[in-house]
Write a protein that binds this DNA or RNA. Structure first.
Length: 806
DNA sequence: CGTGGTACAGTTTTT
DNA sequence: CTGTACCACG
């Protein structure tokens, strides 16, 4: 594959250095330790298990640390850094350690500092891939045609820029949305494809214009002195490839490399790492192929699977002792992940006692699932169910897609259960924050056209499309930035009336603020407040009567407060460009609601995993788009979900779910089949009807309609017949296994004795008439609810339902 | 220039 | 069913 066509060059660069095959592991590090005798400072080694210790002490040469979920990889990683420092093998600035998130970087810094006892000089090269690359790129920006003060665009800026590029190329933006192009370009950059390297087979997108648009976009970025996230890595790879001398410098500088979450690296990151490691090969990659869940964002599981080939003679250490979950939970997770092929393979084990089995329960529909989980959380909180009580903070609900959260939020609001949603819209992506940042950006860099465009008419200044066009024209024909173009337009009399006056005012304000920013006397907080007030931006929200306005003002206050920790606005802007995470950890006992992706790396005593249904989880879209690979990634997601649980893991599914307003009946997820029956308790009452913890009927009494339905259907002969039959089925089996529970549903679905024109009854939709029969699916025209497509098992014959009057 | 209407799409999101 | 994005109108 051409994505790796740089390897040869890489190997060539590596060869001169790779001669000595260093004695790896204990012997060498002990020799080194002979200098600095093991002291009290090396206590940390005592707290490690055998595998962790091996990973920590194998300092030289390539090491792959395969760290299963909950096996203490951060501990091993931080001890390794401490050990490098303690043994005198490296000084802090000689270690390059990269993570994906700021959170992970922060944690590592704190823990290393903790291990080293006293405060050591900071580790300047411990950070995220992106922050480390920014640092490098600022030094060598001129090598890719940028100035060292380049701005980093976020995805919103990128979209707006691409819209301009697309319309400039006379391409219909309707048919070819900028969003999609952004995705294509990002994917290319993730594969380390500069425009010159995009393979011809990949260029079909956008009517064959994608590559031209990519080129035009890169050109625009250069004129704007800007780059996007993908560029940060791609530019560094380009620079290192074109300047071997510079690369050699960095290879000498960074004597040891450490990489966290290696399974999530994309091709560009991989190449950047290989280039830097090619000299000494002192690279330690930590990861878990079973937890690779970011393939759709360009991550290549192949990177970790290929490690031993990439780095011949690599030492592979498996961390398999799990310190997080009970044996039942581990067994369930292991059995599910077993279904994947091409794994490196690990066997997790634990010394903790058995505990609860993984619990499985089916429900009638999504609302009932939410209702049951709400009640179960309350029950577990007060310590019924024969378990010790769980605090709300120790429980989490992990969903596949964020829209699933809605049912839970609705339910929790009505029963007054406190919850917190993790991973909503991010602080720095909020409209008001981006607007404020736009002002700061223009003040700090008057050539930032994207920021200027954003704020020029916010708040409304009477600058519309026409005025903007004039300004753009003026700027382009004079070869200056928009702000300067605006000035020329005002002075040259191009702008008239309202626009002229307000732009003149804005320009004067901007100049004044820029002047203030250069003065020593004024702090960033004061300056920011002045900008927001004098620009009229604060007033704009004060006058806004929509319900969001107060919250937005709150956010602005928070933004200003965040400035307190910075010396100047410039430093703040750099920080924000790379720190996009959600800081706000609201206090208070609350249940956590988040996506499976968001939960990676976290753990909770009790975890609920709802929505295990075909199409939802595994997601239909993943499977449609990526086939078997997609399915395997979904399975890894299931593995991640289960392994978040420490003590109790509860999986559930619903037979019906509203999808885009349409009711759809669901099949239980195939992953449920893969759960090992010996480690699972099926809570689902036989037949699934009504669901609930042994309850036959739903307890909802929220509406008259549902009460009617309940009174009606649950007393009906048809219902009783179904109950009876499923109870027989249950009696026939000693106990229900997960796959039996699933089969039971499927079996029942297959029983469809209805024909066109039959009158039927559904517990939710009431009476209706069968219009079409398609296997076990019926198209029913309900008297009150309109047409619905349902699986036959969810309706009963109208006559039998009608036998019981209410 | 601002608003209301309609049309359309609609996973996961570390930086 | 919902949210948003764009277009036509006032």
């Amino acid at each position: 594959m051409s994505s790796y066509n740089e390897e040869d060059a890489f190997e060539a660069a590596a060869r001169p250095h790779s001669a000595a095959e260093p004695a790896r592991g204990l012997s060498l590090s002990q020799r080194a330790m002979g200098h600095a005798r093991p002291t009290a400072q090396m206590d940390y080694l005592e707290g490690l298990n055998t595998a962790q210790r091996a990973a920590v002490e194998a300092l030289d040469g390539p090491v792959l640390m395969l760290a299963g979920a909950g096996t203490g990889k951060t501990k091993a990683l931080t001890c390794r850094i401490a050990h490098l420092l303690n043994t005198g093998r490296a000084r802090p600035h000689e270690i390059l350690a990269v993570t994906f998130t700021n959170k992970a970087a922060r944690e590592m810094k704190t823990r290393v500092a903790g291990l080293m006892g006293e405060t050591i000089e900071g580790m300047p090269w411990l950070g995220t891939f992106h922050s480390v690359c920014v640092k490098q790129l600022r030094r060598h920006a001129e090598l890719v045609g940028l100035k060292s003060n380049f701005t980093i665009l976020d995805s919103d800026d990128v979209i707006r820029l691409l819209k301009q590029v697309i319309s400039a190329a006379n391409i219909d933006e309707k048919r070819w949305p900028a969003r999609q192009l952004a995705g294509i370009i990002d994917a290319w950059k993730n594969r380390a494809w500069t425009p010159a390297k995009v393979p011809s087979g990949e260029q079909a997108a956008f009517n064959g214009h994608a590559l031209d648009l990519y080129k035009a976009y890169q050109a625009r970025l250069k004129t704007l002195n800007a780059c996007d996230f993908g560029d940060l890595l791609l530019h560094m790879v380009t620079i290192f490839q074109a300047h071997p001398d510079l690369l050699a410098d960095y290879q000498r500088r960074f004597r040891f490399l450490l990489v966290d979450e290696y399974q999530d690296t994309n091709v560009a990151q991989y190449m950047w790492l290989r280039l830097l490691a090619s000299g000494h090969k002192n690279i330690c990659c930590v990861g878990d192929d079973d937890q690779s869940i970011y393939g759709w964002r360009g991550a290549e599981v192949g990177n970790i699977l290929r490690f031993e080939k990439d780095f011949p003679g690599a030492k592979v250490v498996r961390l398999e002792q799990n310190y997080r979950s009970t044996p039942h939970i581990l067994a369930a997770a292991s059995a599910v992940i077993e279904g994947n092929s091409g794994r490196l393979g690990k066997t997790l084990w634990t010394a903790t006692p058995d505990g609860e089995k993984v619990r499985l329960i089916g429900h009638w529909d999504g609302e009932e699932e939410a209702r049951w989980i709400g009640e179960e959380i309350e029950a577990m909180q007060s310590g019924t169910r024969g378990m010790t009580p769980f605090g709300l903070d120790s429980m989490a609900i992990l969903v596949r897609a964020s829209h699933q959260m809605r049912a839970f939020e609705d339910r929790f609001l009505t029963i007054g259960l406190p919850y917190r949603v993790i991973g909503g819209p991010r602080f720095y992506e909020r409209l008001e924050i981006r607007d404020a940042m736009g002002y700061f950006r223009v003040v700090m860099s008057p050539e930032d056209d994207l920021a200027f465009e954003r704020i020029v008419n916010t708040p409304k200044r009477g600058v519309g499309g026409k005025a903007m066009q004039d300004i753009q024209h003026m700027a382009r024909s004079n070869g200056v930035a928009l702000k300067e173009g605006a000035r020329l337009a005002v002075e040259g009399g191009v702008l008239k009336g309202k626009a002229k006056g307000s732009i003149a005012q804005l320009l004067a304000d901007l100049d004044r603020w820029s002047g203030l920013a250069g003065e020593a006397g004024i702090g960033p907080v004061e300056l920011a407040e002045q900008i927001l007030d004098e620009s009229g931006y604060t007033t704009m929200w004060l006058n806004d009567k929509t319900p969001e306005a107060p919250g937005r003002l709150e956010n602005l206050k928070e933004l200003v407060k965040a400035l307190e920790q910075f010396e100047n606005l410039g430093g703040f802007l750099e920080h924000v460009a790379l720190i996009m995470d959600n800081e706000s950890e609201e206090a208070g006992e609350k249940v956590t609601l988040m996506t499976l992706h968001g939960a990676k790396g976290l753990e909770f005593p009790a975890v609920f995993l709802p929505g295990w249904e075909e199409g939802l989880f595994p997601s239909q879209r993943s499977m449609d788009e990526s086939g078997q690979k997609g399915l395997e990634e979904e399975r890894r997601l299931a593995y991640v979900g289960i392994t978040r649980a420490e003590e109790v893991c509860t999986i559930s599914f619903a037979g019906n779910r509203r999808v885009y307003g349409q009711w759809q009946s669901q099949l239980p997820s195939r992953f449920i089949d893969e759960l090992p029956e010996d480690h699972v308790d099926v809570l689902t009452p036989p037949g699934l009807y009504g669901g609930g913890y042994g309850a036959a009927a739903p307890q909802t009494s929220s509406s008259f309609e549902s009460r009617v339905a309940k009174a009606d259907v649950y007393e009906s002969p048809g219902w009783k017949r179904l109950q009876e039959r499923s109870q027989q089925a249950a009696r026939a089996r000693a106990k229900t296994t997960p796959s039996q529970a699933r089969d039971m549903v499927i079996d029942m679905k297959a029983v469809s004795s209805f024909g066109i024109g039959d009158r039927v009854f559904h517990q939710k939709f009431g009476y209706g008439e069968v219009m079409e029969v398609e296997g076990d699916k019926l198209l029913i025209e309900f008297d009150r609810a309109g047409p619905k497509k349902l699986v036959a098992k969810f309706v009963v014959d109208a006559a039998s339902a009608g036998d019981v009057p209410f």
